[in-house]
Amino acid sequence: MRASLTPTDAPLRARLLALALAVAVLAAVAVVATVRAADRAAEKDRAQPGEPAAHAGEVTLRQPGRLLFRNLAWGPQRDRVSAVPLTATSGPRTSAPRDCLRFHAAAGTGVCLRATGGVVPGHEAVLLDARLRPVRAFPVPGTPTRARVSPSGRLVAWTVFVSGDSYAGGAFSTRTAVYDTRGGTLHSDLERFAVLKDGRRHRAADHNFWGVTFAADDSRFYATLATGGRTYLVAGDLASRTMRTLRENVECPSLSPDGTRVAFKKRVAGASADAPWRLHVLDLRTGRESALAERRSVDDQALWLDDRTLLYALPGDFGADLWSTPTAGGGAPRMAVRSAASPAVTG
Rank of each mutant, 00 (worst) to 15 (best):
L67T: 15
L68A: 07
L68V: 12
L68S: 09
F69T: 04
N71S: 13
A73M: 12
A73R: 07
A73Q: 04
W74C: 09
G75M: 14
P76F: 05
P76Q: 10
P76R: 12
Q77F: 00
Q77T: 08
Q77A: 13
R78D: 00
R78L: 10
R78K: 11
V81S: 00
S82A: 11
A83M: 02
L86A: 02
L86M: 13
L86H: 08
A88P: 08
A88F: 05
T89A: 06
T89C: 01
S90W: 10
S90N: 07
S90G: 13
G91I: 08
P92S: 09
R93Y: 12
T94P: 14
A96Y: 02
A96Q: 03
A96D: 08
D99T: 15
D99A: 11
C100W: 06
L101F: 05
L101D: 15
R102D: 10
F103W: 03
F103S: 00
A105W: 00
A107Q: 08
A107Y: 06
G108V: 04
G108I: 01
T109F: 02
V111G: 00
V111S: 03
C112W: 05
C112T: 05
C112K: 01
L113P: 00
L113G: 14
L113I: 04
A115G: 02
A115T: 14
A115V: 05
A115Q: 13
T116C: 15
T116R: 13
T116Y: 12
T116G: 11
G117Y: 03
G117F: 04
G117N: 12
G118E: 11
V119A: 12
V119K: 15
V120M: 11
V120F: 10
V120A: 12
G122V: 07
G122N: 12
G122H: 08
G122M: 03
H123D: 11
H123G: 10
E124M: 12
E124K: 06
A125K: 06
V126G: 07
V126R: 04
L127C: 11
L128Q: 02
L128F: 01
D129L: 01
D129S: 09
A130K: 03
A130Q: 10
A130W: 14
R131W: 12
R131E: 14
L132E: 02
R133T: 13
V135M: 14
V135D: 06
V135T: 11
V135G: 06
R136I: 02
R136A: 04
A137K: 09
A137R: 09
F138P: 14
V140T: 14
V140G: 05
G142R: 05
G142L: 10
T145P: 07
T145H: 07
R146D: 13
